[in-house]
Amino acid sequence: MQTGDVLPEQAYTVTRADLVRYAGASGDRNPIHWSQRVATSVGLPGVIAHGMYTMALAARALDTWAGGTGKVRELSCKFTKPVVVPDDDEGVVVRVNGTVKQVTDAGVQVALEVTCGDDKVLGAPKAVLEA
């Protein structure tokens, strides 16, 4: 990877079934991630993906670009907009884009952009990959 490289966009489909599976795998069983009733009762537009689910998709894109797991040294983001996941078979698409900002001996700095529709769902997502 070289400074200025634009990394190929990764698009991931998220369904309610994925969220249920992630709830089990992660231990985060907050009902706003699987119950329409609870999600709307706290003012959400519907069931939303775990913020950490979306962050995991960003990490998955990084693994793809880096050619495998275990290369991420730093990973950070803010959770700015919820990813609303409809109760259908199509789900919703989350897109992860990345640009190489700097390459040093300390690592490869990657600025990410994670979107769902027109919304940037993560704030200032970025990572450092092993050099």
Binding site: S26, Y53, A56, L57, A59, R60, D63, T69, G70
Partner: peptide
């Protein structure tokens, strides 16, 4: 890994 549509290849666990 499967929950986020990925698969485990025997190496490191997913970053998150």
């Amino acid at each position: 890994a499967a929950a986020t549509g990925s698969s485990y290849d025997g190496g490191a666990a997913p970053a998150t």
